[in-house]
Design a protein around this nucleic acid. Structure first.
Length: 304
DNA sequence: TCGCAGGTGGTCG
DNA sequence: CGACCACCTGCG
């Protein structure tokens, strides 16, 4: 089983990344690592201090063997950490995970820009300093966020796993568990609401079937209008799809949590979604999506 | 029992 | 247009 070690990792925290509401298929392990699936690959990720890599003998051994690869062979820095990706080849890392984890983006610069002249945002950023916006598969993002509407996170996760297990394909195993892909649009288009009953999507079943059919006919959405025309995709879900699945990092999804936090921190009336979008466009601009994630994580953290 | 959870589509005025 | 309101499901 191969493994990749990526050195000099900064502005990166697995809890922040996987618990800021952008993805639903990663599970936290007791050791603080996360196992999950994306783009048809199952991996486990663990972040460790750089000097731990040096000190742990078995890592030394595995690094010197062919089973493991050290990338970005930068000198170990005290400031940076190392990311261990287990069940991953160097080819997979370059083809999938580097981009997925947004590793080539300078988050320090984003944070300092957002913090300037905004002490409230600076405070929020301290709490979610290791957030990264994952670049997820578009189709999966569409399915996930249609399911997410008027729903809670544990149940969203359950629905997605049910859907994958019932109608997806087995794509890999890790520690004895089989992982399944999200069924494609052609699969959903072929199903009836009765077929989807066991998945427990409720009234969202119809949305997924309709969206599957639309995408089979017109292909994946490339523009705002195509996205908005999908069944079950309103303004909020569309913003999430743009941000997490289409690389539009200026997108600023306003959900109940963002409404709460924008009211608390910027004193905007809690019902005025339009005012919040306008505020975000004006003050966060191209960094709207990052700002949204820091605010979201902050308010969620505060209300626990 | 009932409200709520990362909203949306449909139906009014 | 903008303001309601029903809606699957599971949990406290």
């Amino acid at each position: 089983m191969s493994r990749v070690i990526v050195n000099n990792i900064k502005d990166f925290n697995l809890d922040h990344i996987f618990d800021c509401g952008q993805c639903f298929r990663w599970e936290r392990k007791p050791d603080g690592s996360y196992t999950g699936i994306a783009f048809g690959k199952v991996v486990n990720m663990k972040l460790i201090a750089a000097d731990e890599v040096k000190m742990e003998k078995h890592f030394k051994d595995s690094i010197s063997s062919n089973a493991s690869i050290v990338l970005n062979n930068v000198h170990f820095e005290r400031s940076g950490k190392s990311l261990l990706i287990d069940n991953c080849t160097s080819d997979d890392f370059e083809a999938i995970w580097r981009d997925y984890l947004d590793l080539d983006r300078d988050y320090a610069a984003i944070k300092s820009q957002l913090s300037a002249n905004d002490p409230v945002m600076a405070e929020a950023i301290i709490h979610g300093q290791g957030i990264r916006i994952l670049k997820q598969d578009l189709w999966e993002t569409i399915v996930s966020f249609i399911i997410s509407q008027n729903n809670n996170i544990p149940r969203i996760k359950g629905c997605i796993e049910n859907l994958a297990k019932t109608f997806g394909q087995p794509v890999g195993e890790y520690e004895g568990r089989t992982y399944y892909s999200i069924p494609g649009p052609e699969v959903l288009a072929s199903l009836t609401e009765t077929d989807l009953g066991p998945v427990k999507l409720g009234y969202r079943s119809k949305y997924l079937i309709e969206t599957g059919k639309t995408i089979c006919g017109h292909g994946l959405p490339e523009k705002e209008e195509q996205l908005a025309s999908l069944c079950g995709v309103g303004p909020k879900v569309a913003s999430c799809i743009k941000l997490f699945g289409m690389g539009q990092q200026d997108s600023f999804p306003v959900d109940v949590w963002v409404r709460r936090v924008m009211h608390q921190l910027y004193n905007i009336p809690e019902s005025d979604i339009k005012a919040m979008s306008t505020y975000a466009r004006k003050h966060f601009g191209a960094l709207g999506g990052f700002a949204q994630q820091y605010l979201f994580y902050y308010i969620r953290e505060n209300s626990k």
